[in-house]
Computed example of a mutant assay.
Amino acid sequence: MTDDPDLPPAAPEWRNFYGRRFGKTLRPSQKGYLNEDLEALRPRGITREENPERQPLDLPALFGDDRQVWLEIGFGGGEHMVHMAATNPGIGLIGCEPYINGVAMLLGKIRAAGVGNLAVHPGDVRDLFDVLPAASLSRAFLNYPDPWPKTRHHRRRFVTQEHLVPLARAMKPGAEFRVASDIPDYIRQTLEEVPQAGFTLVSEGSEAWPDWYSTRYEQKALREGRAPHYVTFTRAG
């Protein structure tokens, strides 16, 4: 791989992955969504088999024009992602989620909403970072990520330099990065780590964004008495 800063850096041959890929047995309808819908929504060129040279993705070709591209990291059940795509039809939104049950839930919501400006990577977002062109993202979302509550597991959280540095490389100067969580220690680490990767803190507190769509994880947190917290950064530079 070349040392050109506009190209993605060389990716490791193998990475540790922590977390679940499969949950409860899928319903027949969900299996149908995966079999019938996923292939058409999956960006080509993320896997090593499809892109052994790890060439940058052609995002205008992915969405059919040169529009803004947003990224949702770990979309869970997909409700926030579908809402954002439906209310912003002029953007292209890529979602990454390794949990296949969540992918199936998203595909069902896409069918119901009839949105067409989405792409779905059913895998690790780090694989997407390997092939995203530099300064190609206009916004990114990290909503209720896995908290990894044990201290020895904090290095597995998304808000570490392993994840944040490639995210920053892929974001345009001034692009917005939103983080939502109900875990105080996750917010603490977010506020410490994200600026170190080249982001500027814009706001943080208990007030959600005007266009926020509450997720099932947030609703669970509220039922269990945990307070949501919302943090906004912009890409420096």
Score class of each variant (00 low, 15 high):
residue 2 T to N: 14
residue 2 T to Q: 13
residue 8 P to I: 11
residue 20 R to G: 10
residue 23 G to K: 10
residue 26 L to Q: 10
residue 26 L to N: 04
residue 29 S to C: 00
residue 29 S to H: 10
residue 30 Q to A: 12
residue 31 K to L: 15
residue 33 Y to G: 02
residue 36 E to M: 12
residue 40 A to D: 10
residue 40 A to P: 09
residue 41 L to N: 06
residue 43 P to L: 00
residue 45 G to F: 05
residue 46 I to H: 04
residue 46 I to K: 05
residue 46 I to T: 08
residue 51 N to K: 06
residue 52 P to R: 09
residue 59 L to H: 01
residue 60 P to R: 06
residue 62 L to E: 01
residue 63 F to A: 02
residue 65 D to C: 13
residue 74 G to K: 01
residue 74 G to M: 11
residue 75 F to K: 03
residue 75 F to R: 06
residue 92 G to M: 08
residue 97 E to T: 03
residue 98 P to V: 12
residue 100 I to H: 09
residue 101 N to C: 10
residue 101 N to A: 08
residue 101 N to R: 09
residue 102 G to D: 10
residue 104 A to D: 05
residue 110 I to H: 07
residue 112 A to R: 15
residue 116 G to E: 15
residue 119 A to K: 04
residue 121 H to S: 09
residue 122 P to G: 03
residue 131 V to K: 05
residue 133 P to T: 07
residue 134 A to C: 05
residue 135 A to H: 13
residue 138 S to M: 00
residue 142 L to C: 12
residue 142 L to V: 14
residue 143 N to I: 15
residue 146 D to R: 02
residue 148 W to M: 08
residue 149 P to Y: 08
residue 150 K to A: 05
residue 151 T to Q: 14
residue 155 R to I: 06
residue 160 T to W: 07
residue 160 T to R: 08
residue 176 E to G: 00
residue 178 R to L: 15
residue 181 S to R: 03
residue 181 S to A: 13
residue 181 S to K: 06
residue 183 I to P: 00
residue 185 D to P: 00
residue 190 T to S: 13
residue 193 E to P: 00
residue 198 G to Y: 05
residue 204 E to S: 14
residue 209 W to P: 04
residue 209 W to V: 00
residue 210 P to Q: 11
residue 213 Y to C: 11
residue 213 Y to S: 06
residue 215 T to I: 04
residue 216 R to S: 12
residue 218 E to H: 06
residue 221 A to G: 06
residue 222 L to E: 13
residue 225 G to L: 07
residue 230 Y to M: 07
residue 230 Y to T: 09
residue 235 R to M: 04
residue 236 A to C: 11
